[in-house]
């Protein structure tokens, strides 16, 4: 079972009327989609609204999604169209002169353009979250930190990580979970205090 299969299972649940499943997809893709949309819509508040619109459009269009492409490719396409339509409605041009494809969305790196225009409060909150995650990662034992880094940053599968770390796949599964849980433990107080504001 791949990540794409998990997405497909969630999509099928939404198609059977399960709104909770769509909520999980929103949680998973909101930042990736938001980052993509902020490539077109510079204003952070506007980009946030457009991202929400894109998710609602995707929800409405889901009955027609047949799984011929990956869900995220399909979602990114909706995101790009929503952003472009938003700019057209406001008679503004997309801040790019080159064709931009949904498939390239994840690999596109242009930090100066991608960085959203945030309010000081938002920036502070973001910084706190980033600091907590990075500090927690540094506190982890070496084997847990390596497993999580290889998974999240390098994108390796459990089998590949097992090969790199010379340990069984079950150990990799356990190490990644323990690493995530240790970081999440430090993050939860921050997420709960800022509930309803940003996170």
């Amino acid at each position: 079972m791949t990540e794409r299969d998990v997405d497909q299972q969630l999509v099928e649940r939404v198609q059977r009327g399960d709104k909770h499943a769509f909520d999980l997809l929103v949680s998973k893709y909101q930042r990736k989609l938001g980052r993509l949309i902020s490539r077109f819509v510079r204003d952070s508040a506007e980009a946030e609204d457009v991202t929400q619109d894109a998710f609602i459009k995707a929800y409405r269009a889901l009955p027609g999604f047949r799984g011929e492409s990956a869900f995220y490719t399909w979602l990114y396409r909706i995101g790009i169209n929503t952003a472009k339509n938003h700019l057209l409605a406001n008679k503004r041009r997309a801040p790019t002169s080159t064709p931009f494809d949904a498939d390239d969305a994840e690999s596109f790196e242009e930090a100066s353009l991608l960085r959203e225009v945030s309010t000081p409060e938002n920036e502070l909150m973001s910084k706190q979250v980033v600091d907590v995650v990075q500090a927690s990662l540094l506190q982890l034992p070496e084997d847990l930190r390596s497993a999580l880094t290889l998974r999240e940053i390098e994108g390796l599968s459990y089998e590949e990580i097992a090969s790199v770390m010379n340990c069984p796949v079950g150990t990799v599964r356990s190490r990644i979970f323990r690493a995530r849980e240790a970081v999440a433990e430090n993050l939860r107080p921050l997420l709960e205090t800022s509930k309803g504001k940003r996170w």
Binding site: Q30, E48, A111, S126, L187, W199
Partner: peptide, 24 residues
């Protein structure tokens, strides 16, 4: 939500969006 946030922070620490799921 927390696990996905950790992954997003590790991959893109310069670009962390707010949690939109409640609004959606």
């Amino acid at each position: 939500v927390a696990y996905h946030l950790i992954g997003d922070v590790l991959r893109q620490p310069d670009h962390i969006h707010s949690d939109l799921s409640a609004k959606v």
